[in-house]
Amino acid sequence: MISIILPFFNSEEYLKESIQSVLNQNFHDWELILVNDGSTDNSKDIARSYRDSRIYYFEQENKGVSEARNLGLRNMKGDYFCFLDSDDVLPPKSLKSRLSIFELNPNIHFVDGRVIKMDKTLNITTQEWQPTHEGNPLKDLVSLNGNCFLGLTWMIKRISGKNYQFDTNLTHSEDLLFYMKLARNGGEYSFTDDPILYYRDTPHSAMKNLKGLEHGYRFTGNSIKEWNEVDKKLLKTYQFRYKKAMFLAYLRVFQPINAILTIF
């Protein structure tokens, strides 16, 4: 069984479409864990309107997406799990195409796939991303080269007894650090060529908060610098690439002072 964890906060505009994309899967042995992170709009009513026995509803006070995902992780029952944001959509073969890759090799613990970025109406494709990495993904993640990471797009083989948790100190890059910790414990990464996510690029996307993103990068760098698996050269590569990315990101929104400060 596959557990799909879907946290949401004031997501009434797109939530129904996200849930329906799970119901439309051509693989049917799944559970959908909906976690209401203190919504004040009509999201709760939308989530609770479904009567499918595979859909489970939880709620908490507004504590942020990491706490919401952790609540889902604590309650999942699947042999595999993945995540879905409340404004994104799964193509009909998303679950089955990723699951089929696991069947090829027992050493595979993480399966990804092609991500299609679209406008907010999901009518216009703005960008496509295809992973290319195979093998353990830790060094690739730390290198920030984009061969195996675009966000929470992995399906993960669940290890019995393992405690899966996001760091709740972060509002950004929590997904990157989460994956790094998993990869540090071993396991191979692979991918399908099929599309596994339609990513809705909205004005409120988390990537728009550059200060939060910079803090996430710095926190992640401080977290991994003591790991034996990350040598000094690899750590320098991480620091150079995240600082370059933040420098350019600040310049794009006409914040030259913040761009300069991010170098130090």
Rank of each mutant, 00 (worst) to 15 (best):
I46V: 11
A47N: 04
R48D: 01
R48Q: 08
R48T: 03
R48P: 01
R48Y: 02
S49Y: 08
Y50H: 07
R51V: 00
R51Q: 09
R51S: 07
D52R: 00
S53M: 09
S53E: 15
S53T: 07
S53V: 09
R54S: 02
R54Y: 01
I55D: 07
I55C: 04
Y56M: 05
Y56A: 03
Y56C: 04
Y57K: 10
Y57S: 00
Y57V: 00
Y57N: 00
Y57L: 03
Y57C: 00
F58E: 02
E59G: 08
Q60S: 07
Q60L: 07
E61S: 11
E61N: 06
E61P: 03
E61T: 06
N62H: 11
N62A: 06
K63T: 02
K63S: 04
G64I: 07
G64P: 01
G64N: 10
G64A: 08
G64F: 13
G64T: 11
G64R: 12
V65N: 13
V65F: 08
V65E: 13
S66W: 12
E67A: 15
E67L: 14
A68H: 11
A68W: 12
A68C: 11
R69Y: 15
N70R: 14
N70T: 07
N70D: 14
L71C: 15
L71E: 09
L71V: 15
L71P: 04
G72Y: 10
G72L: 09
L73H: 10
L73R: 07
L73V: 04
R74M: 11
R74A: 15
R74V: 12
R74I: 08
N75W: 05
N75L: 10
M76V: 04
K77I: 01
K77W: 01
K77Y: 03
K77S: 07
G78Y: 05
G78K: 09
G78H: 07
D79A: 10
D79M: 09
